[in-house]
């Protein structure tokens, strides 16, 4: 039997045809949050392993990035709120079932910790800047503060490892908690976003590192993370294939739909497979400009966030 379905009537200019209420700031934040989580995770981990002098970029030099990324990300998040003056209401309660509440509280703890971490390496990494600014001479209390932090740095590192992981997972869980958007509503999104965040973090370390040994180690780490990420993406697609009608329709956006070129072209091929091959070639011993795979991973990470946020909002229950 042929069937025609025709629905009309809900013609409301400010609501229909699509309820796209999350825009670029959300995608940008998801990327920056993941990047900061990845960098902080490696920094804290290598500090705990007492490799901070051996892998100085990962622990010390790059520590300037997370505070900037988190600050920009937080600004983007607040910019996307429509009732901005009431943002403080986030911190009047903790709602265990709401991923956004978890995220707000974790950010409230991680952001200051990332600033403190950077501050603790400020004089060591930027002696020239300090020689110009003479902050420690002008403000005496900074000396006591620095001593206190350096003494307790190991505890900050212990706290940062789980917090960075929660921050990384949260960027994915934020989306997967919405059962009304079938593209997002799968449990693999949390681990996938975490892996992607760690991978972009490792890529950022490769970009900044001047030490071949360090670059090689993070090349290997990044390669492993890319392989895990590819496996998780395969799982995600398989999950859609095995899913209900709404998930099948959601998947069509990524496989053979409007987002196919962006997803498979820019995220999977250019953002994962090509850098993985290049990193592999470099590990074997050939010379590859490391900046290329690292940049590809980072750009792929950004595009991945944009694709998931934009495409997810187009999917919905049909009734």
């Amino acid at each position: 039997m042929q069937e025609e379905l025709f629905t009309s009537g809900r013609n409301i200019p400010n609501i229909d045809p699509s309820l796209q209420i999350w825009h670029w700031p959300i995608s940008l934040y998801l990327f920056l949050g993941g990047l900061a989580a990845g960098i902080l995770f490696f920094a804290a981990l290598f500090y705990i392993l007492k490799k901070d002098n051996e892998y100085s970029t990962a622990v010390k030099v790059i520590s300037i990035v997370p505070p900037i990324a988190l600050s920009l990300g937080l600004m983007a998040l607040v910019y996307d709120l429509t009732h901005k003056l009431y943002t403080w209401q986030l911190y009047t309660t903790f709602r265990i079932e709401s991923p956004m509440s978890w995220g707000a509280w974790v950010l409230l703890i991680v952001t200051p910790l990332s600033f403190i971490w950077t501050f603790s390496y400020y004089r060591e990494v930027y002696p020239k800047t300090e020689a110009k600014l003479k902050l420690f001479q002008r403000l005496k209390f900074l000396n006591t503060f620095e001593q206190f932090i350096v003494k307790n740095r190991i505890y900050i590192a212990y706290a940062l490892v789980p917090l960075a992981l929660i921050l990384g997972v949260y960027t994915g869980i934020l989306l997967s908690a919405f059962n009304a958007r079938p593209l997002w509503n799968n449990a693999i999104l949390g681990p996938l976003f975490l892996t992607s965040g760690l991978s972009t973090g490792a890529a950022a370390i490769i970009l900044l590192s001047k030490n071949t040994k360090e670059r090689h180690l993070f090349g290997k780490i990044d390669l492993a993370l890319i392989i895990i990420e590819l496996a998780l993406i395969v799982h995600m697609i398989m999950g859609y294939y095995a899913g209900s009608q709404v998930q099948l329709e959601a998947m069509q956006l990524l496989v053979g739909g409007d987002f196919t070129v962006m997803f498979f072209g820019f995220v999977v091929i250019l953002g994962l497979i090509v850098p993985a091959v290049m990193e592999l070639i470099e590990l074997i011993g050939y010379k590859v400009p490391v900046i290329v795979p690292a940049m590809l991973v980072i750009i792929g990470g950004i595009v991945f966030r944009f694709v998931m946020v934009e495409a997810g909002q187009l999917t919905r229950f049909l009734y």
Partner: peptide, 20 residues
């Protein structure tokens, strides 16, 4: 007065019953 306009509820509603 408690709503911050984050839009999480709008995304979570299968009926698209909410608006900003």
């Amino acid at each position: 007065d408690e709503c911050i306009g984050c839009g999480a509820c709008i995304e979570s509603c299968p009926y698209d019953a909410r608006y900003q």
